[in-house]
């Protein structure tokens, strides 16, 4: 777990002059499940957008593998395609489940993607719904399609933005299980953003608390939950933080 996949230095992100994220220093290791917890509006999703190179930071640089991403340095497409995100509210294309899962592979010009799509659909338990229009699915099924279209790409990094918010326990368990296996079996680096401390505890190797756009504490999962250094972490972990 020693190889670094991301290094963030003096990153800030502002919208209309308002700074919503400031990270002086953050490292993410290859193959780890790194969770960012914090209340709504803390800047968690902004951090994920930066990590997926969807928006440049206002200042600072993100080092990803051998490349640097910054206000004046876009990330090359080839490297950008090694990272993908599953969003809290998945927007599926108004096509079949199969076409949705195949979408990212088609973008990459990959032919003969059928075996890959089939395997991924089986993995998320949706093989029987392959021909179904994606917009007719339930919330849990739609989120599993979103996860399937992401993992079909075999990314180096999987970013998860509150992937199980508003889902029933069955779907939550299933999605967590898939993420866990993906990390263990394929060594995929996972960055999980959640306000659900229980989920972070179940999945993560390391956890960070983000408050008002700043990282308060980063620790391995046991330390974070059992003996955090910062009193705000203790309060958040105990569910006592008022926000």
């Amino acid at each position: 777990m020693s190889e670094l996949i991301y290094q963030l230095r003096n990153i800030s992100k502002s919208y209309n002059g308002r700074c919503v994220l400031r990270v002086d220093h953050l490292q993410i290791h290859r193959g780890e499940v790194f969770s960012v917890v914090g209340p709504s509006g803390a800047g968690k999703s902004t951090l994920l957008r930066l990590l997926n190179f969807l928006e440049p930071p206002t200042s600072g640089y993100i080092r990803f593998l051998d490349a640097e991403f910054g206000p004046d340095r876009p990330m090359p497409l080839e490297l950008r395609r090694r990272v993908t995100t599953v969003f809290q509210r998945p927007i599926l294309l108004s096509r079949s489940v199969w076409a949705n899962v195949n979408y990212g592979l088609r973008l990459r010009g990959q032919r003969d993607s059928a075996p890959q799509v089939k395997a991924v659909l089986e993995q998320v338990g949706l093989a029987g719904l392959a021909g179904q229009p994606a917009r007719t699915l339930s919330g849990g099924e739609a989120q599993r399609v979103a996860l399937a279209r992401a993992i079909a790409l075999q990314p180096d990094v999987l970013l998860l933005d509150e992937p199980t918010a508003n889902l029933d326990p069955y779907n939550v368990g299933m999605i967590e299980d898939i993420v866990r296996r993906l990390n263990r079996e394929r060594g995929t680096t996972v960055v999980l953003v959640t306000h659900n401390v229980f989920q972070a505890r179940r999945l993560a190797h390391r956890v960070a608390l983000l408050l008002e756009g700043q990282i308060i504490e980063i620790a391995d999962v046991d330390t974070f939950f059992q003996s955090p250094r910062d009193r705000r972490t203790s309060a958040f972990v105990r569910g006592e933080m008022v926000y």
């Binding site: 997926n52 509210r89 294309l93």
Partner: peptide, 11 residues
């Protein structure tokens, strides 16, 4: 949101 999501898939 669709635009951001398809960009996240590598579009």
């Amino acid at each position: 949101q669709l635009r951001q999501q398809v960009q996240a898939l590598g579009a």
